[in-house]
Nucleic acid binder design. Structure first.
Length: 425
RNA sequence: GGAGAGGUGGCCGAGUUGGCUGAAGGCGCUCGCCUGCUAAGCGAGUGUACGGGGUAAACCCGUACCGAGGGUUCGAAUCCCUCCCUCUCCGCCA
């Protein structure tokens, strides 16, 4: 969310920077509401000061008949205050609503562009494997191996669900453990296992609400949402807190399932594990000093890349342009893994720096010194990695001519020493 | 689900015949003094947000905040209502 003062003092700059996202934002309503708020506030507060003063006087007067006139006058003042407060509440509600719908400003170094085609490939790692045969897509491999069952998942739940079986289920579990062990053991993240359902405040803190409610699964009875990513509960861990600078950076790694409606992507990636209503992900989240956030993003990105390097999967890193970064992000790097079955790079991780955008919404602050003014932290997060997509990448990249799949070296300890997923596995 | 207890500042903990309590007291923390070092001791300070003033930092003024929201009242941490959360007992359950 925006700093109101920044918006008040630099409306042109804000509009220009937002325009690079492809967002045309009219700041006139903001200026209007902001002005009204301040004038209402001024009047209401002056009256309250008056009332406080007179009420104290009335309190000190034993003989209330002497202040009868003042009491009557304060009755009127209180009525006026009530009216003003109601109007103020309305104005502040509109103002807040407006601010909550505005996306973050892009980072100054974020490439300016109009769409996906303007994203910049920063680097590539590994070589796409060469096959002596026609590589299959993972859904064929998985079904032939008996480890992936989309048909029965459809019976149980519907489209965009999957069911893993035997070695497939184990591989998914192995990947989760492998990723968590790597990040907690070698990259110094603290493991978190958060709630998978959260309330509205939590969803608002990270930016999913109010704008993207349609993308979320919602429970009516208690007003809960299924998390679309661990970013949501984990970032909100420190909502409404003032941290000490000495505690920063705080780095968390969390495995959670993620639930997304995928509204608006009908017909896309309908086959296979790419786009599911429910998928597993290991997420990395950081709370850092503002001046460190660029560097911390580079580190977080490298921590996520390390998973792919250890698994021997070919990937590239893409610097998303202003038109392609998410609502809350100021800068985003995607990691895309090579999928032989589709002859394409596909996103497997998205690592973002949110600056103080989420911190403002969620009131996550820190103090440099014990007497210092609280400042907003910068929050970062990235997938490390999307587990289902990692599993499918392994299936496609490690497939053999006979339809079996070799288990990457690094995962074997997590697979009870298993080296190959063979048919009927 | 049933019965009861409770939610106050970083923490503990006063405050329920409404009024000068942003909030006693203690702990913690910060600065200064003292001290051979440490500890103890002494003194001072120690919330946040918003609005206004100040070129600005400092600072000053005002308003709000005692789980959340509403009500009563000239005035509410204190009274009333609704909700949320925590704890205890019973039931149920992994």
């Amino acid at each position: 969310m925006f700093d109101v003062k920044y918006l008040r003092e630099n409306p042109d700059q804000a509009r220009q920077r937002l325009a690079t996202r492809g967002e045309r934002i009219d700041l006139a309503p903001f200026a209007e509401l902001d002005g009204r708020r301040r004038s209402l506030l001024g009047e209401a507060e002056a009256l309250k000061a008056e009332r406080n003063r007179v009420s104290a006087l009335i309190g000190k007067t034993r003989d209330k008949s002497q202040v009868q006139e003042e009491i009557l006058r304060m009755q009127e003042v209180s009525k006026r205050i009530k009216d003003l407060d109601e109007e103020l509440k309305e104005v502040e509600g509109s103002l807040q609503g407006l601010l909550l719908m505005m996306p973050n400003l892009p980072h100054a170094e974020c490439p300016v562009g109009c769409g996906e085609e303007d994203n910049r490939v920063l680097r590539c790692w590994g070589e796409p494997p060469v096959f002596e045969f026609e590589p299959k897509p993972h859904w064929e491999l998985g079904e032939e191996l008996g480890i992936l069952d989309f048909e029965r998942a459809g019976k149980l739940a519907g489209a965009r669900f999957s069911l893993l079986r035997g070695g497939g289920a184990r591989l998914e579990r192995a990947l989760i453990n492998f990723m968590l062990d790597l990040h907690t053991g070698r990259h110094n993240y603290v493991e978190i296992l958060p709630p998978f359902m959260v309330n509205r405040d939590t969803m608002t803190g990270t930016g999913q609400l109010p704008k993207f409610e349609d993308d979320l699964f919602h429970l009516d009875d208690p007003d809960f949402f299924l998390i679309p990513t661990a970013e949501v509960p984990v970032t909100n861990i420190h909502r409404d807190e003032i941290l000490s600078a000495a505690d920063l950076p705080i780095c968390y790694a969390a495995y959670t399932p993620c639930f997304r409606k995928e509204a608006g992507s009908h017909g896309r990636d309908t086959r296979g594990l790419i786009r599911q209503h429910q998928f597993n992900k290991v997420e990395l989240v950081k709370f850092v000093l503002p001046e460190e956030s660029d560097r911390e993003l580079a580190r977080l990105l490298d921590d996520a890349e390390e998973v792919l390097r250890r698994l021997g999967l070919t990937y590239r890193v893409v610097d998303l342009c202003t038109a392609d970064i998410g609502f809350s992000a100021a800068r985003t790097f995607d990691i895309e893994v090579w999928l032989p079955g589709q002859q394409a790079y596909r996103e497997i991780s998205s690592c973002s720096n949110f600056w103080d955008f989420q911190a403002r919404r969620a009131a996550i602050r820190f103090r440099r010194e014990s007497k210092g003014k609280p400042e907003f932290v910068h929050t970062l997060n990235g997938s490390g990695l999307a587990v289902g997509r990692t599993l499918l990448a392994i299936l496609e990249n490690y497939q053999q001519a006979d339809g079996s799949v070799t288990i990457p070296e690094a995962l074997r300890p997590y697979m009870g020493g298993l080296e190959v997923l063979a048919p009927q596995g």
